[in-house]
């Protein structure tokens, strides 16, 4: 399967010593800001019901700050909980959020799109050596074998611009960029081969819409793909509708996607969605010099234009 953690034969354990220190720092800071009233809630992670798993948690009571943790199982991008679609969380007042580097890119994107105001949130940035990919066994230690694909090429292990950055980064090994290699493999194919590849991938899609629900940028109150009068995209999991859905999804996130790869993680059918995201990110970079980063930009690349934009493809 494609995006399941790469079962490399030489899986070596990764240095995960930083996670305990990060957990301590999160707890201390959460307790402090909840007690002194800086924030009314902290969105973070707590231990899941099964050993070795975690789940998102919203803590409002300083006494419960000790429930918060950070571990390689903290896969979720919590920025999702701060979008307008989840009004209940933000309504509470100023909210703190535990954010990995890739999550902070999503926060920056949401601020750029006026979904969030910097002064409304308190960012507890965490130093992150990586999280587990889908398919990793609960409780098994983080290794180069079960690391999420996105983390192999991460450039934001230590996020900047947070109100507090918890932990210090251990030295991390150079890893083969599995996803970039996959991109190169696809690029080298003929269009017909690529079509066959994606047709096969998309044919598995069951249209559960998990990829949409988990994306911080899919906050539309009415998704185009749910409309049926007129229907733009067929909503049943048939080949035509699936192809259209995936093209529309990639298109609507172009220039906005933070590359958190949450869509790919939650996909029950193992469809390598982040390849599409990366393709669009690459286009945005090549065409308009735009890269999703940690600083909010007011207008994304597809929300603005320049007089001298490339038009070599237009007659």
């Amino acid at each position: 399967m494609n995006n399941t953690a790469q079962k490399l034969e030489t899986a070596t354990p990764l240095d995960t010593s930083c996670y305990a220190a990060v957990t301590d720092a999160i707890r201390k800071e959460a307790s402090r800001i909840l007690t002194d009233g800086t924030v009314t809630a902290v969105v973070g992670y707590k231990a899941g019901r099964r050993a070795g798993t975690t789940m998102p948690a919203i803590v409002t009571d300083p006494a419960k700050a000790t429930e918060l943790i950070f571990s390689p199982a903290c896969v979720n991008n919590l920025a999702l909980y701060l979008t307008k679609a989840k009004k209940d969380v933000v309504k509470k007042g100023r909210v703190a959020i535990v954010a990995k580097g890739c999550d902070m890119r999503a926060l920056a994107g949401l601020m750029g799109e006026s979904q969030l105001k910097r002064e409304e949130i308190f960012i507890i940035g965490v130093v992150c050596a990586g999280v587990k990919g889908s398919g990793a066994v609960n409780g098994e230690p983080l290794t180069t074998g079960n690391l999420a694909r996105k983390c192999r090429e991460c450039t934001v292990h230590t996020p900047e611009g947070a109100d507090l950055t918890a932990g210090t980064l251990p030295s991390l090994p150079e890893l083969t960029p599995v996803e970039a290699e996959e991109m190169a493999r696809l690029d080298a194919m003929t269009p017909a081969e690529r079509w066959a590849f994606w047709k096969e991938q998309f044919s598995r899609c069951v249209r559960c819409m998990a990829c949409r629900q988990v994306c911080p940028f899919c906050y539309c109150e009415q998704c185009l793909c749910d409309k049926n009068r007129p229907q733009a995209v067929e909503s049943t999991p048939r080949p035509a509708g699936n192809m259209a859905w995936h093209i529309v999804r990639a298109m609507h996130l172009a220039g906005r996607c933070a590359g958190c790869a949450e869509c790919e993680r939650v996909c029950p059918m193992d469809i390598p969605l982040n390849l599409l995201n990366r393709k669009m990110a690459l286009e945005m970079k090549e065409l308009y010099g735009f890269e999703a980063g940690l600083t909010p930009v007011e207008k994304g690349p597809l929300a603005e234009y320049k007089d001298n934009d490339d038009q070599s493809f237009i007659k």
Binding site: L186, W198, I247, A250, A254, M280
Partner: peptide, 8 residues
């Protein structure tokens, strides 16, 4: 770019 990537 996207269409090219999916093979159109």
């Amino acid at each position: 770019g996207l269409l090219d990537f999916v093979g159109v």
